[in-house]
Nucleic acid binder design. Structure first.
Lengths: 117, 117
DNA sequence: TTGAAAAATTCCTGACTGGCTATATAGTTC
DNA sequence: GAACTATATAGCCAGTCAGGAATTTTTCAA
């Protein structure tokens, strides 16, 4: 039996997912998956504006999905726990499976109805 | 080595997460975790308005996270694949760990600085 | 102290979205 | 067909949020 989501943490669960529900944030997190980076590096790597990156990193840090370390002028961010990677891997796997199912379905359709153009 | 998120599916990954990033949708999905239900049952179980539930279910179905089956007047929805449950379980586990860490931290603070009131 | 660099913050705007009410559609029963 | 039920849809409003430009804060170096 699987445990259900307790009411008390529903909002926090939603918050975590909401943080991952934005493509720009995913790109930022993907950049951090390769290792700790400062804001400037994330900016150049993602092509996003500095203000935007800073804002997103703040949100991610507040949600506890990213760690913050200050060193002189620069601030370094890194993934806090493997949760993010695990979640992304699961979802990516599902999407790949969906794509494969699509391909298979189309292959059958073509086999039955398709001819040479 | 972990595979990174391919650019081509970034938006779809974000969409899946975005679907889970709303407390109401989580409640709806939680209801479906117990098994297939028609819209009316989900409405009474979640306490949400009928129009809202219908809209959310439509979104979830479009995102491929919920299956739709029509039977006479009623429409039954069910979880399509175990992805949702897996994701929720992971996040819940993390939040519980965070809470435990908080408790532990506070315990130490009290042990050092706290006295009897 | 002045200047420069990195990051954060503020303000603004446009787009999106959750929830509501009312209405429409589809299917059943009489 | 008329009445009824279950679900879907349309329209509206308020709140939220991503992105950009400009400014501020923080820190280091000269």
């Amino acid at each position: 039996m699987r445990t259900t989501i307790p009411d008390e943490i529903l909002d926090r669960v939603a918050e975590k997912f909401r943080m991952l529900g934005d493509p720009t944030r995913l790109v930022i997190l993907r950049a951090l998956m390769a290792g700790e980076k400062n804001v400037g590096m994330v900016v150049t790597e993602t092509g996003q504006g500095q203000a935007n990156v800073s804002k997103h990193l703040k949100l991610l840090a507040e949600a506890g999905m990213v760690r913050r370390r200050k060193e002189g002028l620069q601030v370094f961010y890194s993934l806090g726990d493997p949760l993010v990677e695990d979640l992304c891997e699961l979802v990516c796997g599902t999407i790949v499976r969906e794509a494969q199912a699509d391909v298979e379905r189309n292959r059958k359709i073509l086999k039955t109805w398709g001819g040479r153009s």
